[in-house]
C-alpha cells in the first residue's frame, strides 16, 4: 500500500516536470518512479497508511491560508522594526512547553513558529520543550497564549484535542 501511494505521488510529479506525453518518456517515468519507490519507500510514509492521512491533508491545506496571513503580519512587524530609526527590539529567550506527540505535528508547529511573528525555534529538548528566540515582548505574549498549538493539534488529531 505504501509502495502504491508513493509511486502515484511521484508519478504525478514526473508528469508535471516532464511535460511530454509520448510513450518513450512515459515509460522512462514509470521506470524512474519505480526505482525511487524501491529506494525510499520508507522515507515518505513512516507509519501505516489509513484514511486519517486524507483528513490530515485536507485540514493542512485549509490551515495554509491562515498561516500565510500570519506570515504577512509578521513580515510587516519585522519591517516596522527594521525601518524604525531607533530599532525598538527587546530580544529574549523563552522556554515553551508543548503537549504534541507526533513527529509531523512537532515539525509543523516548529516551522510555523519560525515563520510567524518575530519568533524562531532554536532547539527542541526531549520532544517536550521548545527554546524560542523572541524579538519583542508583545510577540512572546502572543506565542505563550497558544492559539497556534490548538490549530496544529486539531489538524493532526492529537490526544486531548478530540473535540470537534
Amino acid at each position: 500500500m505504501r509502495y502504491i501511494t508513493t509511486f502515484l505521488i511521484l508519478f504525478l510529479n514526473w508528469l508535471i516536470w516532464s511535460g511530454m506525453f509520448d510513450a518513450f518518456h512515459i515509460s522512462l517515468g514509470v521506470i524512474s518512479c519505480a526505482l525511487v519507490t524501491f529506494l525510499s519507500h520508507d522515507l515518505f510514509f513512516k507509519e501505516k497508511l489509513s484514511y486519517r492521512n486524507i483528513v490530515e491533508t485536507v485540514r493542512f491545506i485549509k490551515y495554509i491560508p491562515w498561516l500565510l496571513y500570519q506570515i504577512v503580519l509578521s513580515n510587516i512587524h519585522v519591517a516596522y522594526l527594521v525601518l524604525h530609526p531607533k530599532m525598538p527590539i527587546e530580544p529574549s529567550m523563552v522556554r515553551l512547553e508543548t503537549e504534541l506527540k507526533k513527529d509531523l505535528s512537532l515539525v509543523a508547529y516548529a516551522n510555523s513558529i519560525t515563520l510567524t511573528p518575530g519568533t524562531i525555534t532554536a532547539d527542541i529538548v526531549d520532544r517536550k520543550h521548545y527554546i524560542v528566540h523572541c524579538i519583542s515582548k508583545k510577540v512572546a505574549d502572543d506565542l505563550l497564549a497558544g492559539d497556534m498549538e490548538k490549530r496544529i493539534a486539531h489538524i493532526f488529531e492529537e490526544a486531548g484535542y478530540k473535540e470537534d
Binding site: 519591517a79 527594521v82 530580544p91 524562531i120 532554536a122 524579538i135
Partner: peptide, 16 residues
Amino acid sequence: LRFPDFYCRMQATGKG
C-alpha cells in the same frame, strides 16, 4: 545589515 546580534539577523532573513 542593521541588527546588532546574530539571532536578530536570523529573524530578519528567515521571514523576509
